[in-house]
Design a protein around this nucleic acid. Structure first.
Lengths: 333, 333
DNA sequence: AATTTTTTTGAAATTACTTTGATTTATTCC
DNA sequence: GGAATAAATCAAAGTAATTTCAAAAAAATT
C-alpha cells in the first residue's frame, strides 16, 4: 500500500485537507503546520497521486502528439520542439506513431480520449480526415501541424507549402532547367498537394510547359523517391532537374540516379524540402527548402496551450520557407 | 459536464455497476441488458474516464521513455521500436528528452512518479546515476536501454559494446591500419567506455600499440566528431583510420577531414557505430557497426511488461553487433 | 410445488485526492 | 473585556469509475 495524503495527515497531526493546501501552496496556513506537513511528507516519502488529483481538477497536464513515424527525421525534429516546449509549461506528451494508417489513428484517438489528455498535436491529417473532423465535435483542443485538412481555416500551423514549392521550382528554372520533374508526397496530404501547386505555379509564371509524365507520387520516404526516379529515368526525355517533396525522397532519387550511372548534379539536379539536420552531409550536400521544424513544434504547443488554458483559437498560421543552396543543383547552358 | 457512467445507467434503466460490467465484459449479464447498455453508450456518446478507472484498478496503461534527444536518429529508431510494441500491448508511452541533463532527468522522474506510470524505458543512464538507483527503491519497474550503470546485473538491454568496439577496430587493423584513432562518446556512459574497452582490446590482441593522443571524448553528435577530428588532424602523425563511437560523430569527423583537404577513405578511413537509416546514403556510404535499434526498443518493452505484469526480472541482455562494410574504409599497403 | 442452485442486478464501499462551507482559534478594535 | 474580524483548521461532499457483498429473479432439481 502506497502512502496517501491521509497517512501524511496522520503523521503531521492535521486533517488531509490541510495537507492538500500545503502541497498546492494555498493561502491561510501557519508556517508551523507547513513545516510539520513537509517533514511528514519527507519522512513518509510521499508522492501525490496525480490520478486522484486530476479526477477532481480535470487537469492532467498531458498532451499527445500524432505523427506518422518518429524515425523520420522531419517528424523527430518536430517532436523535439513539441516535447521541449510542452515540458517547459509542465506538460508531458504521449507519442503516437500512426504510419498514416486510419485505423491506427482512430484507435489512438479513442484511447487518448479515455485518458482525458488535454490536447493534441496532430501531424497525421489527411485531406479528408473524418476522425479529425470529429475531434472538433468532441471539444478536445488540437493543433494540426505541418498538414492541414481541406477547408479548415483555423488551428493549423504549417510551412507555406505553395510558396515552398514555388521557391524550389523557381530556383531550378533560374539555373536554366526546363525539363523539371517533381516527386510529390502522397496525394492525400495537403502538404503534397500544395507543393505541387507551387511547382505548377512557378512553371506557369516562367512559361515552362507542365508535362504530366514529369510528376509522380512518392511516400515521403527514401524508397518512394527511388522508385519514382527510376520511372523518370526510363522516360524518353528524362528531366534535367527534380524537385522532391522532401529530403528523404531526394535521397532515394539520388540513389536511383547513381545506380543508372548518372551524377548529381552534373547530369541531374536535385532539390529537396525540409532541410533535415543531415541534409548538408549527404553526397552531394543537399540543396533544399528549409522548414524550421523545432520552432514549428514549439509554436504548436504555445498555440495549443493558449487554446486549452484561455480558450483562444487562432487562424491558420503559415510559416515562410527558405531556400538553402548547397551542391545538389547546377546551372545548365 | 461530460456524460458519466451514471448517465448511461439512467438511460439504460440499470445500475452503474451493471454498466461497468458490460464495458469490462464481465460475465453474468443477460444479452438483453448488454444490448440496452451499448445502445445507451452509443446514444450518449459515452467515453469512460480512464482516470477514475485507474484510480481504482491501479492500472493506467502508460509507460514513459527517457532518452537524451529524439532528434538523434539513433534514439528515434529506438523510440519507434518502443512505442510500436507498447502500443501493440495496449500501452501508451510518454516521451521525455533529457539532453543528458541530470536535473531534467530528476524532474521528469518525479512528475512520472506522480502520474503513476507503470514502467520506464531509460536510455539516459549515466555511469553512476543516483536517480536510477533510487528508481529501484521506489519499485517502479524499468529497463535500461542501450546504456547501463556500473554494477547493475539485471534489467538492462544493450548492444555488446565491447564486442562492437573490438569488431570495428579489428576491421581497421585487418585493412592494414596501425595508426588508428578513436572518437569516443561521453565518458560518463557505459556505452562510450565499453566501446573504448573493445577498441583497446583489439589493439592489444593484434599487437598494435595504444597511443594516448589517438583517443578523444566526443558527445555522440556531429559537432563533437568535427572537433575531436580537428585535433587529430593537428597531430604530428595523424591517424590513417578512425573508429567513431557512433555514426553522427563519423559525419562530423568526415566533415573535418574534408575541410582540411583530405579525402575519406583515400587518406583516412572512417568506421562508425549504430548504422542509422541514413548511414548508407552519406558520402561515402558509411562502414559501421550495426545495432538493431527497432528490435532493441521492442525487446525492451517485452521485458518491461514481463516485469510489470508477471514480476519477472531478467539478467542483462547483450545484443550481438554486426559489421556493415560500405565505402568509408580502405585497405592500405 | 417447494426447494435449491444459478444467474443477474443493485447498493454501498472504495480508490486518493480537492474544495466548499462550517467551526474553531487567534487577532484587532473600541 | 467583549464584540467583530481575520486566520487556520476540520468535516464532509464531490470526482468517475470498480468491486464486493447481498438481494432478487430465473432456472434447475427433487
Amino acid at each position: 500500500m502506497r502512502t496517501t495524503i491521509k497517512d501524511v495527515a496522520r503523521a503531521a497531526g492535521v486533517h488531509s485537507s490541510t495537507v492538500s493546501r500545503v502541497i498546492n501552496r494555498k493561502p491561510c496556513i501557519s508556517q508551523e503546520t507547513v513545516k510539520r506537513v513537509f517533514s511528514a511528507i519527507e519522512q513518509l516519502n510521499y508522492t501525490p497521486n496525480a490520478l486522484a488529483r486530476s479526477l477532481k481538477t480535470k487537469k492532467i497536464q498531458t498532451l499527445a502528439m500524432l505523427i506518422p513515424d518518429i524515425s523520420n527525421p522531419f517528424f523527430a525534429e518536430l517532436a523535439r520542439g513539441v516535447e521541449d516546449t510542452a515540458n517547459q509549461y509542465g506538460y508531458n506528451v504521449i507519442l503516437c506513431n500512426t504510419d498514416d494508417c486510419f485505423e491506427k489513428e482512430v484507435t489512438y484517438l479513442k484511447l487518448l480520449a479515455e485518458k482525458r489528455v488535454e490536447g493534441l498535436i496532430v501531424a497525421t491529417a489527411q485531406i479528408r480526415d473524418k476522425s479529425i473532423l470529429e475531434l472538433g465535435k468532441t471539444g478536445c483542443p488540437y493543433i494540426l501541424l505541418s498538414r492541414n485538412i481541406k477547408g479548415l481555416q483555423e488551428n493549423s500551423i504549417s510551412i507555406d507549402d505553395i510558396a515552398g514549392g514555388y521557391l524550389a521550382t523557381e530556383y531550378l528554372i533560374s539555373l536554366g532547367h526546363r525539363n523539371i520533374a517533381h516527386i510529390a508526397g502522397p496525394y492525400n496530404t495537403t502538404t503534397a498537394l500544395d507543393r505541387i501547386k507551387g511547382f505548377k505555379k512557378a512553371l506557369l509564371t516562367y512559361g515552362v510547359p507542365f508535362q504530366k509524365q514529369y510528376i509522380g507520387e512518392g511516400d515521403f520516404r527514401i524508397t518512394g523517391g527511388y522508385q519514382v526516379m527510376k520511372q523518370f529515368l526510363e522516360l524518353e526525355n528524362p528531366p534535367t532537374a527534380v524537385f522532391t517533396a522532401n529530403d528523404l525522397l531526394a535521397v532515394g532519387a539520388i540513389e536511383a540516379i547513381r545506380e543508372n550511372g548518372f551524377d548529381v548534379p552534373a547530369d541531374i539536379s536535385i532539390i529537396g524540402f525540409d532541410d533535415i539536420k543531415l541534409a548538408s552531409y549527404f553526397s552531394p550536400p543537399l540543396t533544399t527548402i528549409r522548414q524550421p521544424m523545432v520552432e514549428m513544434g514549439s509554436l504548436a504547443i504555445v498555440k495549443l496551450l493558449e487554446r486549452i488554458e484561455h480558450n483562444i483559437t487562432h487562424p491558420n498560421i503559415l510559416i515562410k520557407p527558405e531556400l538553402v543552396v548547397r551542391k545538389s543543383c547546377r546551372r545548365i547552358n
